[in-house]
Design a protein around this nucleic acid. Structure first.
Lengths: 397, 397
DNA sequence: CGGACTTTGTTCGATGATCGACGGAAGTCC
DNA sequence: GGACTTCCGTCGATCATCGAACAAAGTCCG
């Protein structure tokens, strides 16, 4: 038999979009903000919609706001997410910092804060700090801990998303296979790679209509988050997007911490640029120092950044041919000097990729800024909590 | 507002799998072959399932076969797709050939045939030949044209899948923007790139449980089909998978027909290998000649194929880091000498990719053979016709 | 060999979800 | 201020689904 059991891929179960969860999705997405809108969009009877909405209001998930504009008759009552009693938090765990954003279910940031820490001290030391930060933010805005529905965490290393366990993370000693969600009692905890959540945040925040997007983070290292059909692509073992160790031509001398040579990261990452600037007599330790040198007008730094852009562009040119994205977003510490970085990237991509693939391609700097990861982690949490399945579960409970 | 209208991505409408289309999907996939199975799997009442199945039988989509094994009680009546009255055809259009496979809805090949043609003569000349071949096959097995439900066509160039129009195909003069589906009256026509349908065929045929798969076709040129979450990834402009023009290091001298140099295809494609063998004094015109030389024990040809494998492996190593597939399948004309090609590919991929990405990666030769494209095109057609949405439409009509 | 038991599949009344018609509410337009 | 439009809740009718009961078709065992 050709069409075997597991082959039901690609043929999703059909569904007339009708359940309470679907209704809430439409409300939260803004696709339909009134009862009659919902009836039109879903095709359900107005009476049915009223009943669904009532259930959502009763559970405290939806609220009515003031009436909207009349179009010649009775003005419709606007519906929106009831945000007061639900909070989520997005956590951006870096090598030496932790940034937390407390958000409501619309994705609006209620409060945020950042604190230095050392992730290398291990989960037993770090996670209590995260927990405390979240509690501080909740206290700051006067919301109860019980209202925290979900927690999204971005960590600087590969993660098995389904279980929330880091998978041999190079810069997170002590975290391998540690079940991060188990530490937090109460809210559902989702853990993903930091670049993935940045990609998600950027997509939802600035490129929501885009089907296929790549988010490239150029910091100490170089990584990439992949959004396909609006969802994150994590790959077979959760390591997708690790473009920092793709080989670039003409740099065989550059050894990389991964054991190979000529890795993109080893020649165009922030650490590599800092090292080369130091060799040239301009002391620099990190990507931030490189940015500072560029901003102070150092021509060597500028040249190196532009050359790094070309090298990144060479790798991206191949990925554009392969993946055919609609948008590439450049983020990370070095994107602060994005004019120079982007110039090199664009130059190479448009020269080395196929015309068909670049025809509708745009390459832009990140619009989300320093809290992209925390925001993206929060969005991961929100979308989990507001997923139709989860809402239906809540309604039927 | 953060979560904008188009943001409903990634939150699919929820669905208790229950419609007649879903039931048929389960039957065709073999997930449930009896009424009680269906009740267990879907969670619906046995009476409801009986009603659904009756409707499907009445429409001629399902039939009962002889009873199955008893497990201590009344033996269940086996259900299966009613194949007699439905046919689909898969068409593999190449540069100089056309191969058609007539299939039933289970994917079983009823008849197939191949004929030389020149795609460069344009659609007005080629499509009548395709039509005639399909009719011949139908006559051969004694099935009426009216039973032909859907037609899948793989063409050697980029296609806008939604409309079935080729998009500036390099080797298909006269086909640009030609609406192929309009030519055929009656069956639904789906047109896709040939490598895409090969990837689909290989996935459904041999790797149905695999989530993320790459199919690499090494023939005159080099292309790649991408299967993600069981579905084809076509990219923003339908050109995804075009890896033949990714740059490889150390071959700046090799000019490519695309206008760039050092393209993978220009150094490792069948045409390039044939040219270099000719230069070495072993006349060869195509990939087939290269294969013949290798099989006859020519050491130069063998060396070149292995070296080509290394170059392909260099590109694939990057794509493995980026995409993190579970399986890479090597097909195309040159895969007939896959021992040598695979040796080079494996060697390079496992050396240049990250351990986490290669840990569960397998690289294998195609199991499907020469009619992979026709088979895959047929599967494309079948899955369209059997999609729950389409079946529900048929039932409700 | 025959009755107890098991599993399958159908029939049919009960149930519950959804619909559509109706009417009241709340605005605009002339 | 009345006609009109649109919005929204109510309520009986309708339709899909369910579950119990029953018939069918086998196994198991004394």
């Amino acid at each position: 038999m050709l069409l075997t059991d597991e082959c039901s891929y690609g043929r999703r179960m059909s569904s007339p979009p009708g359940s309470p969860g679907d209704v809430l999705t439409l409300i939260s997405a803004g696709s339909a903000t009134t009862r009659s809108d919902l009836a039109r969009v879903t095709g359900l009877a107005r009476s049915t919609i009223s009943q669904r909405v009532d259930a959502l209001i009763e559970r405290g998930l939806v609220e009515e706001s003031d009436s909207g504009e009349s179009t010649g008759g009775r003005p419709p009552r606007q519906l929106r997410l009831h945000t007061d009693e639900h909070s989520v938090a997005g956590v951006d765990l870096g090598a030496t910092h932790c940034r937390v954003a407390l958000m409501d279910l619309t994705g609006a940031v209620l409060a945020e804060s950042e604190e230095p820490l050392h992730i290398a001290e291990g989960p037993e030391a770090v996670l209590p700090q995260v927990d405390r930060l979240v509690d501080q933010l909740l206290a700051e805005v006067g919301r109860p801990r019980a209202g925290l529905r979900s927690l999204g965490i971005g960590v600087p290393g590969p993660v098995e998303f389904a279980t929330g366990r880091p998978n041999n993370p190079p810069i997170m000693p002590g975290w391998n296979d540690y079940p991060i969600p188990d530490y937090f009692r109460g809210p559902t905890v989702l853990v993903d790679n930091d670049v993935n959540v940045m990609a998600l945040g950027e997509h939802r925040n600035a490129f929501a209509g885009t089907g296929h997007l790549l988010f490239v983070k150029v910091g100490t290292g170089i990584g990439c988050g992949i959004v396909t059909e609006g969802a994150l692509h994590r790959g077979a073992s959760g390591s997708a997007g690790d473009i920092g160790h793709i080989r670039v031509s003409g740099h065989e001398e550059a050894g990389c911490r991964c054991g190979n040579s000529a890795c993109l990261e080893a020649v165009a990452g922030g650490a590599a640029l800092a090292r080369r600037l130091t060799e040239l007599g301009f002391p620099a330790e990190s990507g931030a120092d490189v940015v500072r040198l560029v901003q102070s007008g150092n021509t060597q730094a500028l040249r190196l950044v532009r050359e790094a852009g070309r090298l990144i562009g060479e790798v991206l040119a191949g990925l554009v041919n392969f993946f055919n994205p609609e948008v590439i977003v450049i983020g990370g510490a070095l994107s602060r000097v994005h004019e120079h970085l982007l110039a090199g990237i664009r130059e190479t991509v448009y020269r080395r990729s196929l015309p068909l693939a670049t025809h509708h391609l745009t390459i832009v700097p990140s619009r989300t800024g320093v809290n992209a990861a925390a925001l993206g982690a929060g969005i991961l949490a929100i979308e989990h909590y507001l997923s139709p399945e989860n809402i239906n579960r809540i309604i039927n409970a």
